[in-house]
Amino acid sequence: MLSLGTILLILLVLMVLSALWAVMATDLLRSTIALALTSVFLAIAIYMMGAPLAAVFELSVCAGLITVVFISAISMIKPEGNTRKEDLARKRRKRLKKYIPLPILLAVAGVLLWLNRVDLPFTPDADVFPLTLSEIMWDVRRVDIAGQAVMILVGVFGIVVLFKEFVRRGKGGEE
């Protein structure tokens, strides 16, 4: 059996790698998929750390809904410039040049972090927490639920304001 630490290590390394892919991929669609993959690994890690409900939300909302938002945004945007093969290759080389410092930076940062480990200066008091999840959610955090409702309303108005006319114009063809 693998220990919790080993599983977390594997998951988090995979997560960082897919985040790196999301940033470095040439194609926006692939970036989005890599981002969703990052969310999936993160969700499993969250589950392993004893937060199954949050993991479900991470999986459904971040890996699901946000990917939908991104893909619909990408589909509304036509690819820029021509897509000839040599152009594509040149573009890819240019991107590689711009992003090659990032993995190097990450490796250096990783090594530095590994060498200069800092412990928490205190021991968190990990007593048995008296309240259950539903008590916290619906009693302690009741205002947050109201805040969420307000936030979702704001989001609805945002979509009405920012997306609406595009749909109308789309029906009438170009311009």
Partner: peptide
């Protein structure tokens, strides 16, 4: 996880995820 209070943290993370979705959508 470290504080041993995942029960208190889960609702926080759930709310945060919902809020961030709205921000990203806008």
């Amino acid at each position: 996880f470290l504080a041993g209070r995942q029960n208190a943290m889960q609702p926080i993370v759930i709310t945060m995820i919902v809020v961030e979705v709205v921000i990203i959508a806008v």
